[in-house]
């Protein structure tokens, strides 16, 4: 790890100024991903701006909207009584991620800004366009078991690793951002981007922009929800495929639906067409299977991840079954 300068501003404005002034700086909050990457020489910022103590850790609720400060800890949010009651899908997704210790460190803002876990990105001796633009994508013809089946490019086939983000995109969250040019709101689905020709850029944030909070509307999804994470061991592993499912039921007829997948794309993957197909239908396995088939349209696999073409729809069906207790 390189030597770096460390500063700890007390106000968001000062943090944003510091970041804007220095191209080689990074914000650090929980540090659970950044330090990991710095130890391996994948990221080498010359200045760290410690934002962990900024007064951005509040969890507020008004006008049927949760406003969760970006510095709130994953564990705090996952254990919050109101979140458990009104946004159980978010709580489930948070608890599916990492370990109890990491959830005590990682912040909500940091969680959404996790970098990919692609092994080529992590090893500076291997090619990776995300880490070193122009060096090539090691995964494209390499070990691509964990990689994308949607929205990839020939420059990058990595996936976004956050579980929380899958729930947030399903729940129509909005990201609140402050930057050198002022504040703005980003619909959660537009925070992360597809790799295209610039895989080095994970998000649509502008230089110096700081996520201050995420807003989540309460919505009707308090009961029939499930976050399903399929992984290679029973806990503490990144997803092969994950599914966030939320339904509003009336007499077993689906009134409204939210569906998103993780582990399949460079961003949390919202399945709007599949959602539409669910609405108005009875909550049955047949309905779920039809939606899963729609969800998988356009999916394309590589040498080692073809299983996702089958695991994906299966996981969607199972998540919907779990959400509705359909046997």
């Amino acid at each position: 790890m390189n030597q770096f300068q460390y500063v700890r501003p007390s106000k968001p404005k000062a943090a944003i100024d510091a970041r804007a002034k220095d191209q080689n700086s990074q914000f650090i909050a929980g540090g659970t991903n950044l330090l990991d990457l710095m130890k391996r020489g994948v990221m080498n910022p010359e200045r760290l701006i410690d934002i962990s103590r900024l007064p951005l850790d509040k969890l507020e609720r008004e006008n049927n909207t949760f406003r969760i400060g970006s510095m709130a800890l994953n564990a705090t949010v996952a254990d919050d009584k109101q979140v458990l009651e009104k946004l159980p899908l978010l709580a489930q997704a948070l608890n599916a991620g990492a370990s109890a210790q990491l959830r005590n460190m990682a912040t909500i803002g940091g969680n959404m800004l996790q970098r990919t876990r692609c092994p080529y990105f992590y090893d500076t001796a291997l090619p990776c366009n995300k880490r070193e633009p122009g060096s090539g994508c090691g995964a494209l013809e390499g070990y691509n078991r964990m990689h994308a089946i949607f929205g990839f490019s020939d420059k990058c086939i990595a996936v976004h690793p956050s579980d929380m983000s899958v729930a947030l995109v399903a729940l129509d969250a909005t990201v609140l951002v402050s930057g050198p040019k002022g504040d703005r709101r980003i619909p959660f689905g537009e925070l992360h981007r597809l790799p295209g020709d610039m895989p080095q850029k994970d998000t649509t944030l502008e230089p110096g922009e700081l996520i201050t909070a995420v807003e989540v509307p309460e919505g009707p999804f308090t009961k029939n929800v499930h976050y399903l994470k399929v992984r290679e061991r029973a806990s503490y592993a990144f997803a092969l495929v994950s599914v966030a499912a939320a339904l509003q039921l009336e007499n077993n007829i689906i009134k409204d639906a939210r569906l998103a997948m993780g582990g399949v794309a460079h961003k949390p993957w919202r399945l709007t067409e599949a959602e539409k197909s669910l609405v108005g239908k009875p909550a049955t396995e047949a309905t779920f299977q039809a939606a899963a088939a729609i969800a998988m349209q356009g999916a394309k696999a590589f040498k080692h991840n073809a299983y996702k073409l089958k695991l994906g729809p299966n996981a969607i069906v199972q998540a919907l079954k779990n959400a509705t207790n359909v046997a």
Partner: peptide
């Protein structure tokens, strides 16, 4: 990854 003769799974994650 046999192209590089290098492990691509080499930590506890």
């Amino acid at each position: 990854d046999d192209r590089f003769g290098r492990y691509v799974t080499k930590d506890l994650a």
